[in-house]
Amino acid sequence: MNEQKTVRFIVTRQDTADSAPYNEEFEIPYRPNMNVISALMEIRRNPVNKKGEKTTPITWDMNCLEEVCGACSMNINGKPRQSCTALVDQLEQPIRLAPMNTFPVTRDLQVDRSRMFDTLKRVKAWVPIDGTYDLGPGPRMPERKRQWAYELSKCMTCGVCLEACPNVNSKSNFIGAQPLSQVRLFNAHPTGAMNRDERLETIMSEGGLEGCGNSQNCVQSCPKGIPLTTSIAALNREATVHSFRRFFGSDHAVD
């Protein structure tokens, strides 16, 4: 009666960036409180597939193991999420793992998320304070606003919102919800607001704000519960005002 309980996995694998993906099945011994990463580690320890053939260990990204770094994101049973907080007990089996292929796949479950870091540079998602002399303390931020901004600052650039979005794909150059919400965050910062127009201009150009089709999958999928669609709608309002000001000219163009 002492039959060993097992966990079944179907993993979408890919040997190189250019090779064709294929599925491989694994069956590993069950342990209480397993997450997907511990299962991947178990496969790495003994890389034998369900048919009993020896295979290569699965490649995946991970770092913090507590859902704050975003590196271990992948499609788990069809939905993009972090594999560190995906508990085996809560998942339907066989558990299907696949890379977030909105991004270029490097190998197996590992993807190259650099497009998001590039867009963060494009939209200048920082507060510029570098200079040759001490600028002194910046303007104070009201506590209530700080608490609101903290929610937006939880973004870990995991890429789940881009993976869930029907408009982020190879046919479009939409940058996705993640950098847009960061524009909202840095435009709200009292010092960051000094470059507000510059960021607005960037997201009003090709691939920006207007790529959003309001499927609102991003806000449903965000592991940090960031109000992404509220950020986008708020930026839509700012873009409306900004475009009128730019067209007609305005006395309030700089505040």
Binding site: G78, K79, A164, P166, N167, N169, K171, S172, G213, N214, S215, Q216, N217, Q220, S221
Partner: peptide, 14 residues
């Protein structure tokens, strides 16, 4: 230019 995904993301707005 959309790549619909209601199969995996069956939310109302999607």
């Amino acid at each position: 230019t959309a790549k619909n995904n209601i199969g995996t993301h069956g939310y109302f707005r999607n």
